[in-house]
């Protein structure tokens, strides 16, 4: 019962990582390269935080969300990348009687700009700004948590990332993002949340701040990394005792993730990517464990023109 979805949408952002050029990382697609592929994620939880109280719920059992996401990243220049993502999401609960839902969720479009780069003797410092926009592609309901496939909010996010990479391949990066979220509409004329009743179908969505820290190794065809992601929702109510979760709940979490990416020597231009992540702590979210795997292909348009 919990907003496991938000958790998913955050991981959506970090899922992309096509050739390692995701919204959150410190890597860029070269000019006129286009990397695209699909990522499959299996995410499940049994325990969740009802407010700050960790519990399970036999009327939910284990909540499973699977997601197949298309990703694409195009190098407009070496320093400006355009990124797009769109997932298909499916939910189900092993306990209780509530039916799971499925459908196409939100489109994310982002522009990533490397605005600083400095070569040092021992390595390279770089900094990035990302502007991201996401909006629902279908009219799924956000008012059926934890089985809704998304929150139905249109968002605009600003992100700054800084990274330092040693010449040997070790790197560390930190990234922070502020997410503005539009209000959402429910199918019902009234709702109760955070100690108040509202006589409208409009729900105010608190904004969010997310930070990601990673340490990894990237050299030649291999990238591997361990990362921590903290999401803080800047407002919103807690799930009340024995209540259902609500779209504007204060959904916070701290997740740890391990990712690996490898550019296959053959067939050429293919890469595989895998990530696992686990929720260490949270508020109003499920303690999810997720496994993601994907395959990516890179088109080198510039090279073709040259040939």
């Amino acid at each position: 019962m919990t907003r496991y979805l938000l958790a998913v949408s955050i991981s959506i952002a970090s899922l992309c990582s096509a050739t390692a050029q995701t919204i959150t990382d410190h890597l860029m697609m070269p000019k006129k390269d286009f990397c695209t592929g699909f990522m499959y994620t299996h995410d499940q939880w049994k325990d969740y935080w009802e407010g700050s109280l960790k519990r399970d719920n036999q009327n939910i059992g284990t909540l499973t969300t699977t997601q197949l996401m298309w990703v694409g990243n195009y190098g407009l220049t070496d320093k400006i990348n355009l990124i797009a993502m769109a997932p298909y999401v499916k939910t189900s609960a092993s306990g209780g009687t509530l039916v799971g839902l499925d459908g196409i969720q939100d489109l994310t479009l982002a522009i990533k700009y490397q605005f600083a780069e400095k070569e040092l003797a021992s390595g390279k410092f770089s900094a990035f700004g990302v502007g991201a926009f996401s909006t629902p592609l279908t009219n799924y309901t956000p008012d059926y948590l934890p089985l809704s496939i998304g929150l139905q909010s249109t968002t605009v996010a600003g992100r700054v990332t800084a990274a330092f990479r040693l010449n040997e391949g070790w790197y560390a990066s930190a990234s922070g993002s502020y997410v503005w979220r539009s209000n959402v509409s429910l199918d019902r004329p009234s709702y109760y949340t955070d100690g108040n009743i509202y006589f409208t179908n409009q729900v105010w969505m608190p904004n969010q701040f997310t930070s990601t820290y990673s340490i990894g190794y990237h050299k030649n065809a291999l990238q591997t990394e361990i990362n921590l992601t903290q999401q803080n929702t800047l407002g919103g109510g807690d799930i009340r005792r024995q209540d259902m979760p609500f779209v504007s709940n204060r959904m916070n979490f701290l997740k740890v993730g391990v990712l690996g990416m490898y550019y296959l020597p053959k067939p050429k231009n293919f890469a595989v990517r895998a990530q696992i992540s686990y929720t260490l702590d949270g508020l109003n979210v499920g303690q999810s464990f997720s496994v993601m795997g994907g395959i990516l292909y890179t088109f080198h348009f510039a090279n073709k023109e040259n040939q």
Partner: peptide, 9 residues
């Protein structure tokens, strides 16, 4: 997006 009062409450 920074201003998003709920209407109709």
């Amino acid at each position: 997006f920074s201003c998003k009062d709920i209407t109709g409450n």
